[in-house]
Amino acid sequence: MPREAEPSLNEKQFVIQALQENLRLDGRELEQYRPLELTLGDQYGVADATLGKTRVLAKASAELTVPYTDRPLDGIFTIATELSPMTSPAFELNRPTETEVLLSRLLEKTVRRSNALDTESLCLIAGQKCWSVRVDVHVLSHDGNLIDAACFAVVSALRHFKKPDTSMEGGVLTVYTAAEREPVPLSWLHSPFCVTWSFYGEQGEIAVLDATWLEEQVRVGSCTISLNRHGEICQISKLGGTPVEAVALLQCSAVSLTKVKEFSTYLDEKLAEDAKRRNKGGLLAELSAENDR
């Protein structure tokens, strides 16, 4: 199995020592994110998030299927993550590494298990027809903090996504094309975001946000906290690593909340911008044309 080249001892030493003096290689504060950029695609449900040099593309899609027999009233919602060799030579196709398993579990817990998407609303005819919403996550470039970037991309893609409108009349299900009826957004309940902390030092006393790949390789532990802006924790996972004071973790969660609020506002702005762009001369123009007649 190919492995990622490890940083040299000198490099490691340098990064750690700098962190102990509250300095980061790229001049950021310890609790500062790299600039987060979101590009929403022309198509509904395509979101491209960049965090420094980390870039993740998420694409949401929907198709009609039969619901699972044990959950006839729920639609199907899946998040597919695949880390391709394009990202790093350490990833191989069809052979999930530990990173990949943990990433997909985290997205699953953050977005799916926290009921961010109302799966009941995806059901059209109980036990017979439902929407299957699928989000594909493609990591285009990996420079640390995959989790936060991937989660942001997934949530943005789903918020941006619109599925074809349907109607039920006398037991006949009609699916309208985008030309017939404007597609409808998903029934979205809340927007959770991940905030990943990396810990450094003997006792894990230095907590750093948004670690780069180099910083990730020398950290002694990490903790991902998923929250929404209402202050609800959706998931916390500190899976082993050097022990960290409980009080420090509480502080981390409080700081995470402010970060999540920033993410939330940024996403809302972007979505509003996108809607405005699409609407330019859109529905309004149509309406005015009708009035003219």
Binding site: R113, Q203, C223, I236, S237, K238, P243, L249, L250
Partner: peptide, 23 residues
């Protein structure tokens, strides 16, 4: 010690509850 090695939460909970639960 009070030092936490593993902390896993898989359910939705108010952030204000965290302190009590953790303690």
């Amino acid at each position: 010690s009070d030092r936490v090695v593993v902390l896993v939460c898989e359910s939705r909970v108010q952030i204000s509850r965290l302190e009590g639960m953790l303690a």
